[in-house]
Amino acid sequence: TGEEYIAVGDSTAQQVGDLTFKKGEILLVIEKKPDGWWIAKDAKGNEGLVPRTYLEPYS
């Protein structure tokens, strides 16, 4: 379980453990880390770190 967020920009994984996503994708945020990198899952079930500045709450 988690909260749904929509990507407001494209982000390409810079290192192992990062999640690549495109603008408009809905991501499920699993954990919000205080350093600004959140753990999220995409629609295909891929999981990784995403920069919170690229996400907005999805409603």
Score class of each variant (00 low, 15 high):
Gly48Ser: 02
Val8Arg: 08
Glu4Ala: 14
Glu3Asp: 09
Ile39Thr: 07
Asp10Met: 04
Gly36Leu: 04
Ile26Phe: 05
Ala40Asn: 00
Val50Lys: 00
Glu31Ile: 10
Tyr58Pro: 05
Leu55Arg: 00
Asp35Gly: 12
Ser59Arg: 09
Phe21Trp: 04
Gly2Ser: 09
Leu28Tyr: 11
Lys33Glu: 04
Glu47Cys: 14
Thr12Cys: 14
Gln14Val: 12
Thr12Phe: 13
Arg52Gly: 15
Gly45Gln: 04
Lys32Tyr: 05
Ala13Leu: 08
Lys32Leu: 03
Gly24Phe: 04
Asn46Thr: 07
Gly2Asn: 08
Lys23Pro: 03
Val29Met: 02
Glu4Asp: 06
Glu31Ala: 11
Trp38Ala: 02
Thr12Lys: 12
Ser11Phe: 15
Ser59Asn: 13
Glu3Met: 10
Leu19Ile: 05
Glu3Ser: 08
Trp37Pro: 05
Leu55Gly: 00
Val29Asn: 00
Glu25Pro: 00
Ser59Ile: 13
Leu19Gln: 00
Asp35Arg: 01
Leu49Thr: 11
Gly17Cys: 08
Val29Trp: 00
Pro51Cys: 15
Glu4Asn: 08
Tyr54Trp: 08
Arg52Leu: 09
Glu56Gln: 09
Lys41Gln: 11
Leu27Lys: 00
Asn46His: 08
Gly45His: 03
Ala13Glu: 09
Ala40Arg: 00
Ser59Gln: 13
Lys23Ser: 06
Gln15Lys: 15
Trp37Ile: 13
Gly24Val: 01
Val50Ser: 01
Leu49Met: 10
Thr53Gln: 14
Tyr5Met: 05
Gly48Phe: 05
Glu3Ala: 08
Thr12Leu: 12
Tyr54Glu: 10
Ala13Thr: 10
Leu28Cys: 10
Ala40Tyr: 02
Phe21Lys: 01
Glu25Gln: 11
Ser11Tyr: 15
Lys41Phe: 06
Ser59His: 13
Thr53Cys: 14
Thr20Cys: 10
Leu27Trp: 01
Phe21Val: 07
Gly36Ile: 03
Gly24Ser: 03
Ile6Tyr: 07
Tyr5His: 05
Lys44Arg: 13
Thr1Val: 13
Thr1His: 13
Tyr54Pro: 03
Leu55His: 01
Thr12Glu: 12
Ser59Phe: 13
Gly45Thr: 01
Thr1Met: 13
Glu4Ser: 11
Gly9Tyr: 15
Ala7Cys: 11
Gly9Leu: 15
Ala40Thr: 04
Pro51Lys: 13
Leu28Asp: 03
Ile39His: 08
Gln15Thr: 11
Gly2Phe: 13
Thr53Met: 12
Trp38Met: 03
Ala13Asn: 10
Asn46Gly: 05
Ile26Leu: 07
Asp42Trp: 00
Ala43Ile: 09
Ala13Asp: 10
Leu27Met: 06
Leu49Asn: 08
Thr1Pro: 11
Pro57Ala: 08
Gln15Arg: 15
Asp10Ser: 10
Leu55Cys: 04
Val16Arg: 10
Ile39Trp: 12
Gly17Ser: 07
Asp42Glu: 01
Ile30Lys: 05
Asp18Phe: 15
Ile30Arg: 04
Pro34Gln: 11
Val29Tyr: 00
Thr12Arg: 11
Lys41Val: 14
Trp38His: 02
Leu49Ile: 10
Pro51Ile: 08
Lys44His: 13
Ile39Glu: 03
Lys41Met: 12
Gly17Asn: 07
Ala40Phe: 03
Pro34Ser: 13
Phe21Asn: 00
Gly9Ile: 15
Lys41Tyr: 06
Glu47Asp: 04
Gly2Cys: 14
Glu56Phe: 06
Gly24Lys: 02
Gly17Glu: 05
Asp42Gly: 03
Glu56Leu: 08
Asp18Arg: 14
Thr12Asn: 13
Asn46Gln: 08
Glu56Pro: 01
Gly36Thr: 03
Glu56Asn: 05
Arg52Lys: 13
Ala40Ile: 07
Leu27Ala: 00
Val29Gly: 00
Asp10Cys: 08
Lys32Met: 07
Ala7Val: 06
Gln14Thr: 14
Lys44Pro: 02
Arg52Glu: 14
Thr20Ser: 13
Leu28Ala: 04
Leu55Asp: 03
Pro51Val: 06
Leu49His: 08
Glu56Met: 09
Val50Trp: 02
Thr53Gly: 14
Lys44Trp: 14
Gly48Glu: 01
Pro51Thr: 07
Glu56Ser: 07
Asp35Lys: 03
Thr1Arg: 12
Glu4Leu: 15
